[in-house]
Computed example of a mutant assay.
Amino acid sequence: MNIRRCAAIALAACIGAAGVLWGAGEWLSQPAARPIGAAPADFAAQAVRIPIPASAGQFLAGWFKPGQPHGGAVLLLHGVRADRTQMLARARFLAAAGYTTLLIDLPAHGESSGDHITFGAREGEGVKAALAFLRTELPSERVAVIGASLGAASTVLALPQPEPDALVLESMFSTIDDAVGNRLVGRLGPAGRYLAPLLLWQLPLRLGVHTTDLRPVERLAQWHAPVLIASGSEDRHTPWHETEHLFAAAQAPKALWKVEGAAHVDLHAFAPTQYQQRVLAFLAVHLRGAPPGP
């Protein structure tokens, strides 16, 4: 085989690979829209539509269920390509404990508006709008956020003012570079790490977002709210050492929960009893003024 033919084959392979990666980037950023409908009959929540002031004409769809007066309120935020139903089991036990709950579809998910998933950059405007809704509806209540994966990153990146009174951050990536690299390694092996930049360079072209905009570990250091950080010991999307890095960046008061045996999964579904005990104890201290446990 002559040099010219080898070069042509190599060029064709590169073009083909670039096309595959471009297609992958398009799929990853496409909206995850789907109909949700009314809340289940056993969770008597009202449907809400919350405008996003920072984005004209854009809105959030969600469910709002008032709790007991002065009991505290919790905003629940799902992971990427999911919707508010992912957080329904959490909302049920919180509502049973008297908390007001607000479950939303993040922008470009479920029934909310949005033309692209931006991995926390624009989703953060939805978080701000949802928190503003809770502050308006319940001006005397203390407010917490429970965010899983994308929901956690969107909250931290948004840095809303005023801050919520407490944060529960589950399975949150430290940087988008790590998140993409870890996922490609999981699918393709060590070579995946070298392909990550070929996906990441698309962000400014496709979404107007830069990798420097998607570094929760840096933004977390600017927060002052009490935080509970949780992740699975077997999570390959966010390895434990990255979660420890996040915890080190957070300001006190803070708590860390290593969920033994859990991968990048729904932590409440994986360990429901432990989850409920830890989260309810954390919220009781920071939303209701209960004394800290031992």
Rank of each mutant, 00 (worst) to 15 (best):
Cys14Arg: 00
Pro226Met: 06
Arg81Pro: 00
His241Cys: 00
Lys65Asn: 07
Glu137His: 13
Phe282Glu: 09
Glu163Ala: 15
Leu76Pro: 11
Glu260His: 12
Gly147Gln: 08
Ala152Asn: 11
Arg84Glu: 10
Val279Lys: 04
Glu111Val: 06
Val180Glu: 03
Glu242Thr: 11
His268Ala: 12
His116Lys: 15
Leu188Gly: 04
Ala96Val: 08
Asp105Lys: 02
Ala38Lys: 11
Ala7Ser: 11
Phe173Cys: 01
Arg187Thr: 02
Ala152Arg: 08
Ala73Leu: 05
Glu26Ile: 05
Gly192Thr: 05
Pro190Trp: 10
Ala108Gln: 09
Asp83Pro: 05
Leu150Val: 03
Cys6Ile: 14
Leu88Ile: 00
Leu11Glu: 11
Phe119Ser: 12
Thr273Phe: 07
Pro197His: 05
Arg206Cys: 01
Phe173Arg: 00
Leu267Ile: 09
Leu184Asn: 01
Phe270Ile: 01
Leu150Gln: 04
Val20Thr: 13
Ala221Val: 06
Ser29Val: 15
Thr243Val: 13
Glu242Cys: 04
Pro162Thr: 13
Pro160His: 07
Leu287Asn: 03
Gln222Glu: 12
Ile36Arg: 01
His78Thr: 09
Leu77Met: 12
Asp266Ser: 11
Leu203His: 05
Ser149Gly: 08
His237Ser: 13
Leu60Asp: 06
Ala269Lys: 13
Ala32Trp: 02
Val80Asp: 06
Gln202Ile: 07
Gln46Thr: 14
Phe282Pro: 06
Leu138His: 05
Trp63Phe: 10
Gly114His: 08
His109Arg: 02
Phe133Lys: 02
Ala230Arg: 08
Phe93Cys: 04
Val145Lys: 03
Glu170Met: 08
Ser113Arg: 03
Gly19Tyr: 08
Val143His: 11
Glu234Arg: 14
Ala41Val: 14
Ala61Ile: 06
Trp27Val: 15
Val185Cys: 09
Gly192His: 04
Gly67Trp: 04
Leu203Arg: 05
Ile146Glu: 00
His210Gln: 09
Asp213Met: 07
Glu218Arg: 12
Leu94Gly: 01
Cys6Glu: 11
Ile9Phe: 10
Gly186Met: 00
Ser113Pro: 08
Pro239Lys: 04
Leu11Asn: 07
Thr85Pro: 01
Trp223Arg: 12
Leu198Trp: 12
Cys6Met: 13
Ala263Tyr: 07
Gly293Trp: 00
Gly23Tyr: 06
Thr136Cys: 11
Ile52Pro: 04
Pro272Trp: 09
Thr238Ile: 12
Leu167Cys: 02
Gly293Ile: 00
Tyr99Asn: 08
Arg215Asp: 11
Pro272His: 09
Lys258Ile: 10
Leu267Tyr: 04
Leu11Phe: 14
Pro226Ala: 07
Gln222Trp: 02
Ala179Leu: 13
Thr175Ile: 02
Ala91Lys: 02
